[in-house]
Design a binder for these strands. Structure first.
Lengths: 206, 206
DNA sequence: ACTATAATGTGAAATAATTCACATATATGA
DNA sequence: TCATATATGTGAATTATTTCACATTATAGT
């Protein structure tokens, strides 16, 4: 079923998911594509197109059953099954992310965090005991972790990424401003905070 | 000159900028579109198209003069002129961002940080003295700050955004998972960390 | 039961972004 | 100076994504 639809569709599905959950708590039962679209300030046809990639999920004349749709999206996105992840680099950003609640809600569990610093290794950082970077290979393999968040300093990013690949990691969320070069078997996604701020600022009138 | 080119073009310009700076330090003088493209794993035609939006910046048969191109991109992106920004919400993420080096390199200066907590206000967090949220309007106006990073808890995001708008903020980098509703005069850009991780994970083979 | 209204699902059209392909210009070496 | 190789800049083609438009189906009110 994969890759006949835009990546953006998946991201919007996630946004729908959040709103549907919220509406469930409110006790609402049905929602139209227009209703969802208005909340997100997008076109209703976009909502329908997105959902149509995954079947006929609505009911003509009535809309979408919120509970059903929420569950279907959870299924599509694989939110039911918890996935263990690790964070490598417990600097400011790394430790902030280790405490970030948003990951858990989408089915992620931070099961390991690493750093090289002697001051951190063995100690709790935001409730997580920090493992030694020298045990990276061993621990990631033992725990069969496939997803890593990379928050090390730029100058050790590539080297750390290689170690992650070797340890069996299949996906890296890269917060460093470095273009990582790994085999195609490893999916990389870059989150470039400075770039986001600059993009915003560029398209803003002074 | 604005908005005849894709937003992605601006983002790539920024990546080019980083590489050009690096190459300058190495002492290289010229680079071809192919050279740049290979570094970023994109098409060389993409590089040429991106640059062509801003003039004839290269020399046929020779390529691009690295110093000239770097300066031209800095000019396009407005990197020379420092811009003051503020961060609202000094939780884990906010304080990590207040210490983040990447912003400075692109011409941003974090001149104010805010929180509501009595324990934080008046104290230094990562080198920044935290201002009281109740002084938000006054301080942002006084300092003519136009850009804000929003890292407050989800349940106060919308309300804080409204306060920011009132204080004259024209652009918000929103790290909360909340769809902010403001007048069109305020540019909003969302950074949704959980969504990034989920997108990555979705397109990864288990 | 009938009519008016609401809403989906989906090809087709429109829009946007990327990549191709090549005419044109420059550089280099013999 | 000429031939060959290199590399830009750009209109055209391609590919991707969004939006339109409408046939179809369901609902609600009378």
């Amino acid at each position: 079923m994969r890759k006949h639809f835009p990546e953006r569709t998946i991201q919007r599905l996630l946004l729908y998911y959040r709103y549907l959950n919220f509406m469930l708590q409110q006790g609402t039962k049905m929602i139209s594509s227009r209703g969802l679209a208005d909340l997100l300030e997008i076109m209703d046809s976009q909502v329908r197109k997105d959902l149509s990639y995954f079947g006929k999920l609505g009911k003509r004349g009535a809309g979408y059953d919120i509970l059903e749709l929420r569950n279907k999206i959870a299924e599509i996105l694989g939110i039911k099954s918890k996935k263990n992840i690790c964070i490598v680099g417990m600097g400011n950003l790394g430790s902030a992310l280790s405490a970030y609640k948003g990951f858990e809600e989408l089915g992620f569990n931070i099961s390991l965090v690493f750093d090289v610093s002697e001051q951190k290794v063995g100690h709790k950082i935001k409730g997580q005991i920090c493992s030694n970077y020298s045990d990276l290979l061993k621990l990631i393999k033992e725990n069969s972790i496939k997803i890593a968040i990379l928050t090390v300093p730029a100058n050790s990013a590539q080297e750390t990424a290689l170690a992650l690949e070797k340890s069996g990691i299949k996906a890296i969320l890269n917060f460093t401003p470095v273009k990582l070069t790994l085999s195609k078997a490893v999916k990389i996604r870059n989150v470039d905070l400075a770039l986001e701020l600059k993009t915003l600022s560029f398209f803003t009138e002074d």
